[in-house]
Computed example of a mutant assay.
Amino acid sequence: MKASVRTYGATKDRLGGEKWLEVDVPEKTSIRELMQILGIADDEIMAIMSDGRFIDRNEHINEGDRLQLLPFIGGG
């Protein structure tokens, strides 16, 4: 099953710098499991969006989902 994942900042850079990653995962894979597969720690990501709505890390990925993994923003 294929889905697209967009990451930002240091996470994006660590995953190769591409704007969107195309990922192939088994059915019933959760967002949390996808993050583990990609090597993204839970504390790196503040929120996850799919199709303009916020979703929980425990939701399952559907074929063709376009997921945005939004990091915490620092500064000062």
Rank of each mutant, 00 (worst) to 15 (best):
D13Y: 10
Q36L: 10
P71V: 11
A10N: 15
V25I: 14
L67F: 04
D13M: 12
A41L: 13
G9R: 07
R66T: 11
E22L: 14
I48N: 00
F54L: 07
T29V: 10
I55H: 06
I37N: 07
L69N: 03
D43A: 04
E59N: 06
E22M: 12
I48H: 00
K2R: 13
N58Q: 08
T11N: 14
R32A: 14
K12Y: 05
R66H: 15
R32M: 11
L38Q: 01
K2Q: 13
F54D: 00
Q68L: 09
D65I: 06
G76H: 02
E18I: 05
E18C: 02
N62V: 05
D51R: 13
I55N: 04
L69P: 01
E27N: 07
Y8R: 05
V23I: 12
W20T: 12
G64A: 12
E22F: 09
I31N: 04
G16H: 07
R53I: 09
G64N: 14
T7R: 00
M46Y: 12
P71Q: 13
I55P: 01
T29F: 06
T11A: 15
Y8W: 12
L70C: 09
G74F: 10
I73M: 14
I73V: 15
S50K: 12
T11E: 14
I55V: 12
I61A: 06
N62W: 01
A10S: 15
R32F: 07
A10M: 15
D51L: 04
R6P: 00
M46E: 13
E44L: 09
D56V: 00
Q68G: 03
I40N: 06
I31Q: 02
D24R: 05
R14A: 15
K12T: 07
G74I: 02
G16P: 01
R57A: 02
I31V: 15
I37Q: 13
V25T: 12
D13V: 11
G75C: 07
E27R: 07
E18P: 00
Q36T: 08
V5H: 01
D56E: 09
G16V: 03
L21E: 08
V25C: 10
M46K: 12
S30P: 14
A3Q: 03
E59F: 01
P26E: 12
R66K: 15
N62P: 00
G39A: 09
M46H: 09
I48V: 15
I45P: 01
G16C: 05
N58S: 09
T11D: 13
L69F: 14
L70K: 02
N62H: 11
L34R: 03
R14W: 10
I45M: 05
H60L: 11
I45V: 15
E44D: 11
V25Y: 07
L67S: 05
D43W: 02
L38T: 02
D65T: 11
G76D: 04
D24P: 02
T29R: 10
E59L: 06
L67C: 05
S30N: 15
S50L: 01
Y8P: 03
I31E: 03
M1G: 03
T7V: 08
M46L: 10
L21K: 10
F54K: 01
R66V: 12
F54G: 00
T29I: 09
R14V: 10
G64L: 13
